[in-house]
Design a binder for these strands. Sequence first.
RNA 1: CGGGGCGUAGCGCAGGUUGGCAGCGCGCUUGGUUUGGGACCAAGAGGUCGGAGGUUCAAAUCCUCUCGCCCCGACCA
Length: 606
Amino acid sequence: MRQSKAFFQTLRDAPADAELTSHKLLARAGFIQALGAGIYSYLPLARRSLDKIEAIIREEMNAIGGQEITMPVAQPGDLWKQTGRWDAAYPELVHWQDRSGRDMTLAMTHEEVVADLARRQISSYRQLPQLVYHLQTKFRDEPRSRGGLIRVREFTMKDSYSLDMDDAGLDRQFEAHRIAYHRIFLRCGVPAISVRADVGIMGGKDSVEFMALTPAGEDTLLLCDSCGYRANREVAVLQKPQPAEERALPLEKVATPDCKTIAELAAFLGVPESRTAKAVFFVAETDVKPGKERKDDAAVAVDSSQAASSRFVFAVTRGDMEVNETKLRAALKIGKLRPATEEEIRAVGAEPGYGSPVGVAGALVVVDDLVASSPNLVSGANEEGYHLLNVNCGRDYQPDIVADIVAAADGDACSRCGNPLHVARGVEVGNIFKLGTRYSEALGALYDDPAGVKRPIVMGSYGIGVGRLLATAAEIYNDDGGLMWPVSIAPFHVSLVVLPRPGKSGAAPLDVAEKLYAELQAAGIEVLYDDREDASPGVKFNDADLIGLPLRITVGARSLEQGGVELKRRDQAERQLVAVDDIVATVAAELAAMQAELDKTVPDSA
RNA sequence: CGGGGCGUAGCGCAGGUUGGCAGCGCGCUUGGUUUGGGACCAAGAGGUCGGAGGUUCAAAUCCUCUCGCCCCGACCA
């Protein structure tokens, strides 16, 4: 591509609203153009990189038996009603009515359509297993998009769906994806670790997320260096400390003026925060309509007669720990939880800042298992300015649910080996779910087994955010000068920079550059040719660095006088002089070496 | 949804309190001089000051409403 004709321009200044390095650089280098919040156009450079990422994904998906299809973006709402994903619990699902009043939605994922396809295409166990995938635009009306391409509303996702007779088949496809995903990410130059994760909106049994470790990541991970335990903070399990061995002491009320926080309370009373209990208040919204679609996770704790109402939740953890809302939701078996308002807190007889489950009525009391077994904690008195000493769960109040509801923190003990966990930030570049039969049952995707018995197809779902992967690579590979693409996903292989010097060296550099441009392309090397006549050398070099192609060839009078052209790797400072006749071969060899370097990191497929 | 901030030329910004010709840098156009790390001279083009309403002789500036965007939090395949 001739840069003089290219449909993008580089910017000296990044747009003011760009925060992340990847966002700034992709915008400055002319890869992307924002249209609205979380909605971007992909300009030629980005498109080319995305094509390469998608090609890698297709190769790896095909290698594990995937068949590519395309499923619609616009979908009838009825399908989503049948699986229970239409209701208000999913506000990021955009919907509208078509001209005849039918409910429609923009797909944010395609489980419904796959299940519908499966019920139409699959009737016998002889047709299983299957693996289909597509690369398709999705739309999620994120409450808050941010971080350039890391978190957007409209995005392209590769998702694959496995269809199996049974769990054993699902396990095989799940494992095949796990390996394929590591290969995909590493082939793109993005190391990603797999972590245990929450199943969230997808439902299902098992979920693994693939996380690229970078401080720009939005997810918090807990990692154990000793045994390899890795989990998203949402589900990370920690080994809790042993509670003190003490006899329960009598309850005692003490004045604790202006001690609204655990830190103030602990300091005032001179006790460690670990000897306090804190209450956190939520309201569980049970507006999800009861019905067959929610049957599997019908709340044990919430009486179905209360459906379409809400329930006050009183969560109690030790003072030095934080509530993990995902775990709390799991304990409640409820999808929606919001912080309670002060009025709601007072309505159940508690006092904000001085809350405890002692003496409250009408609330669902969920107690962390560590609190349940810890004697003589300091807890609120539900009265402004007072706390209670020696509160004991079971004696002074009765929990409705005892469960692990605290968030693991840096330094907590690993649940598997006891060594300390540490936290890291990661970008979720992919995830894999064992869906089971939730969707196939809801939509009637059944097959006849060998005995002629109808059984629901066992499904799995596996996603990769293509644009997010690009942005993550940009986040990882850059320096002060700009981007620094891995050879496998760089939009072009080579920046060919010509420095003509009219009047002094005549046409020589331009002639050589034009010749090289043709020869390199003929050799299958992708060239971004900076043939701009009006750009100074400094501008060209800076733009080349900013765009970040793996190699740069400079054709100038100076190097020609020395007998060749200059070759430089973007990730190295050295420049080498290469004879014009050798440059194509040298570039090919350099590219092959870089590709080989990358390939070494990629594990064999199973 | 809660808190905070910002909308003035393609990008970055000033002007706003104190109402009075809409500016600066980069980029863009034309001509000339330059040519190995974001050159120089000269001449230009480009803005319904996000939108609507109001106050006023006069509004980018003051008031009301509204739309958009960003950050933190909440939430999240």
